[in-house]
């Protein structure tokens, strides 16, 4: 969201968040560290193995899968799953391979997903940051009460908000549109406000304090000092928000009705069991899932340094 480097403000205590991590001493290989590596390696394998299985299944042929269910290699090796996922196979080819025959306009769904996730992320993080700033850095009458009410929003079960929001989006004429899908989480989520407020409250912005600004000055401070200084937290939140928006299912399922607003997660539905007693198109589903996860992975890698380095929490209140 911001490209500015963290502001040259000295944090109050501890090491400077912007400073490179102190050079590690070359440590002796102790049994404890060995064990640590083993545990980490095991967790990595468990984490990554299902992805291998997805790839192996994506490269298999559906009709051969039941016969080779536990075969660690692709059964009936074929790239048809990926062709179906990309919408390159004809309906006839697709049906013949145990696919659904429904059309799959991958680039379009990808674009829809990008639009929705970007809309949600940029707006939600920005507006939530504004609110978090007011809760953390400004003193105003009723602040704590309003914040407590916001926090209570964390506890509202999603099932509660589903239908009223659907009716509202309908009344706004936004059914089957991308803004309709984005809207309910575009302005805030309690988690985003909570997360950023805790963060803002913990950092000492000395320039801001010194300036004792009010009115328009507050906005300038917010944009030029607070957001840049908080950028690691903001980016962490943004990436997590982006992934969450990308993977959302039930809400877009209600709002979207046609290709105009079909996002990737919904498009994956055409690879699921089409009738109650049928099997899913495993190869197509896994291929499409991998393809859908790819942009997220690239996004993460692009921002990884920023997320995991020098997040400057100095305390949670």
């Amino acid at each position: 969201m911001t490209t500015t480097a963290p502001a040259p403000v000295a944090p109050p205590t501890g090491r400077t968040p912007t400073e490179p991590a102190p050079r590690r001493h070359r440590r002796r290989v102790t049994p404890g560290r060995m064990l640590g590596w083993v545990v980490l390696a095991l967790l990595m394998i468990v984490t990554i193995f299902p992805f291998y299985w997805m790839l192996r299944t994506a490269l298999s042929t559906n009709a051969a899968l039941p016969g080779g269910a536990a075969d660690p290699l692709p059964v009936g090796f074929s790239g048809e799953g990926f062709r179906r996922a990309l919408g390159l196979a004809t309906a006839q080819e697709s049906l013949a391979d145990g696919g659904s025959g429904a059309s799959m306009d991958f680039p379009r769904y990808l674009l829809n997903s990008v639009v929705v996730a970007t809309l949600v992320t940029v707006c939600q993080v920005f507006f939530s940051a504004m609110a978090a700033y007011a809760f953390a850095r400004l003193r105003w009458p009723g602040r704590d009460v309003v914040y407590a009410v916001f926090l209570a929003g964390l506890m509202v079960p999603t099932i509660f908000t589903l239908l009223p929001n659907f009716l509202l989006v309908r009344d706004l004429g936004l059914l089957d549109t991308l803004p309709g899908i984005a809207l309910p989480t575009m302005l805030m989520t309690p988690f985003a406000v909570f997360f950023l407020r805790q963060f803002f409250a913990g950092i000492s912005f000395e320039i801001e304090e010194a300036a004792k600004l009010d009115g328009a000055g507050r906005f300038r401070t917010f944009f030029t000092i607070v957001l840049p200084m908080a950028s690691p937290a903001v980016v962490t939140l943004a990436v997590l928000t982006y992934i969450t928006a990308w993977n959302d299912y039930l809400w877009p399922l209600l709002v979207s009705q046609s290709d105009d607003s079909r996002v990737l997660t919904l498009a994956l539905g055409i690879f699921r069991a089409q009738s109650p007693q049928a099997s899913p198109d495993w190869a197509g589903l896994m291929a499409a899932t991998l393809l859908a996860a790819l942009p997220m992975l690239l996004l993460f890698l692009a921002f990884a340094k920023r997320i995991v380095n020098s997040i400057g929490f100095t305390g949670i209140k």
Partner: peptide, 30 residues
């Protein structure tokens, strides 16, 4: 604090609208 109020409200307004419309109202209705 009182002098801060207008600025604070402006900062909270967009998120506040989102909260009232998409969290508070559905909850009360529920």
């Amino acid at each position: 604090e009182v002098r801060n109020l207008p600025a604070a409200l402006l900062f909270v307004l967009p998120a506040g609208v989102g909260f009232v419309v998409f969290f508070l109202w559905p909850t009360l209705r529920g």
